[in-house]
Simulated scan of single mutants.
Amino acid sequence: MTVVSKENAEHYRWGDQCDGWHLVKSKSLSVIQERVPSGCSEVRHLHKKSEQFFFVLSGCATFEVNGEVFELKEHQGFHVPSNTPHQLSNLGQKDLHFTVTSTPPSHGDRVEVRA
């Protein structure tokens, strides 16, 4: 057991400019801290098995979920059930920092979905 932070966690890049840090990476749970620069977004997708909880640390996240748009500000969260099409975007002026918790882990469970 050890104290974990983005300074000692496994890092990866996604999209063109986004960062992720695996804070917890086990068979049943994934907790990732992510950074999304202004103007960037992920592709619209769903997870067949994984449900996810997003929690904004700083910045503002725009979520499109099943055709409905939600804006999450600092210290707000959002639950996305499995099989639910969603897309996260940073339409704000500063970097978006958030955590995403997935159970089971969402890697290998992602299916891109067109709007």
Rank of each mutant, 00 (worst) to 15 (best):
W14P: 01
A115N: 12
H22G: 07
Q87E: 04
E68S: 12
G20D: 09
G92R: 00
N83T: 05
V4R: 14
A115K: 14
F54V: 03
C18M: 15
H22D: 11
P37Y: 07
V111S: 09
V69Y: 10
Q33M: 14
Q33G: 01
V43Q: 15
K49F: 13
T84Y: 00
V100F: 01
F70L: 09
G39H: 04
L57K: 11
R110Y: 04
Q76T: 11
G92H: 01
K48W: 05
H75G: 05
P104S: 04
F98M: 11
S89T: 04
L88S: 08
F70C: 07
H22A: 11
C60F: 07
C40D: 13
R13Y: 10
M1I: 10
T62Y: 06
G67M: 05
H22I: 09
H86K: 03
E51R: 12
Q87M: 10
G67N: 04
E68P: 01
G59Q: 02
F55K: 06
K49Y: 14
H79D: 06
E112S: 07
S89C: 07
K73Q: 13
P85D: 00
R114M: 11
D109Q: 08
D16Q: 13
V43M: 13
V111C: 07
S30G: 13
L23R: 09
S82C: 15
P104T: 02
L88D: 03
F55A: 07
S30Q: 15
L57V: 11
V36D: 08
K49N: 15
I32N: 06
A61D: 05
L29K: 09
Q76Y: 09
L23N: 07
E68K: 15
T62Q: 11
H86Y: 08
G77V: 03
N66H: 09
P37A: 08
V56Y: 06
K27S: 14
V3S: 12
N66V: 05
G67S: 05
F54I: 02
S38Q: 08
H11V: 09
L88F: 04
V69Q: 12
T103N: 10
P105V: 00
V36S: 08
E74Y: 01
L29C: 14
R44G: 10
V100I: 12
S50M: 02
S82A: 15
V80S: 00
E68F: 06
